[in-house]
């Protein structure tokens, strides 16, 4: 069959102009000394990377990022599977209504999620209730790292657990009905059926693995929610604040270029992050059973 290569030309053009070109230029920039104030580029080899790797603020950002990435993805994975099981075990009417409600967060702009889960909205009410309403004399202090890390993870899970729910529902639907019928005939309890049929099918599903991979890659570039928290916590001026993910750190350096911050170093950081993205995407392509058929 003759492949209509001409059909690919516009897309390839965009891929090169909007992705490959800029990434390549970013890479070149990361190998040079450069600032917006003084835009002439002098090549410095891997100096920017070395500077970065010896910077404790960078490592701090890596720690925060890893914590938030794995924490969020883990929570949304668990919650999503739970929601998926809940949905599939409900009647058709409840299924339609509740799954429509559950997917709403996917549509909410991440920056709005930052607002939604901000200390002033959710916890203001909750704390007032705890402190005055129930007269417990105690409250949740959202300025404590443990609290806000948890909340940031929860808010990311709030957005993305529904994705795992959708994939889980699809996986459960694809399990042949005969398996459950056979289990029924043998008198298996619903827990046994879950343990022996549903759960292994979910874990073995390439769809779940691929979703986990993609969500992990996405979480590495998490920006809006930590960005807004950064703001609530009033620490947007200093570098290395406790909510600085890699992205927020880059943003801080970027928005401070007027003070001649090392902009080439930002690009170096972005390239390191890119390595994570590209590796994960390669894994996705390899593991997905549907992308290349």
């Amino acid at each position: 069959m003759r492949v209509p290569y001409i059909f690919l030309v516009p897309s390839l053009l965009i891929i090169f102009l909007a992705l490959v070109g800029p990434v390549f230029q970013s890479f070149l920039l990361s190998l040079s000394e450069f600032s917006l104030v003084n835009p002439s580029q002098t090549p410095v080899g891997f100096q920017n990377y070395i500077g970065l790797l010896s910077d404790s603020i960078f490592w701090r950002a890596i720690q925060v990022t890893l914590l938030l990435v794995f924490g969020s993805v883990f929570i949304e994975f668990i919650v999503g599977i739970f929601l998926g099981l809940l949905i599939t075990s409900s009647g058709p009417k409840a299924r339609t209504w509740f799954s429509s409600i559950f997917v709403i967060p996917i549509a909410v702009a991440p920056i709005v999620t930052g607002v939604l889960w901000s200390p002033n909205s959710f916890f203001d009410d909750l704390n007032t209730l705890l402190y005055y309403g129930l007269s417990l004399g105690t409250y949740i202090d959202t300025s404590k790292p443990f609290t806000y890390y948890s909340i940031i993870m929860l808010s990311d899970a709030w957005i993305w657990a529904p994705l795992f729910m959708l994939v889980t529902v699809a996986v459960i639907r694809s399990i042949p009905k005969e398996q459950f019928e056979a289990a029924d005939v043998m008198g298996a309890s619903s827990f046994t059926k879950f343990q022996k049929i549903t759960f292994p099918a979910i874990l073995a599903s390439p769809a779940i693995v691929v979703t986990l991979l993609l969500r992990t890659a996405d979480a590495f570039r998490m920006f809006e929610v930590p960005y807004s928290w950064n703001f609530w916590l009033g620490q947007d001026a200093e570098l290395g604040a406790p909510v600085d993910t890699v992205s927020v750190l880059m943003w801080k350096m970027f928005s401070s270029t007027l003070y001649d911050f090392p902009i080439a170093q930002i690009t170096a950081m972005a390239i390191l992050l890119l390595v994570v993205t590209l590796t994960t995407c390669a894994l996705v392509l390899r593991r997905s059973s549907s992308l290349m058929d």
Binding site: S11, I15, L29, R221, L273, T277, A282, L285, M292
Partner: peptide, 23 residues
Amino acid sequence: GKAFITYALLAMRTISPFAVLLP
């Protein structure tokens, strides 16, 4: 080249904006 295009689109979707922002 099919794998390349699929991979590029996947990467395009997943890339951190900072990797292309400066250019």
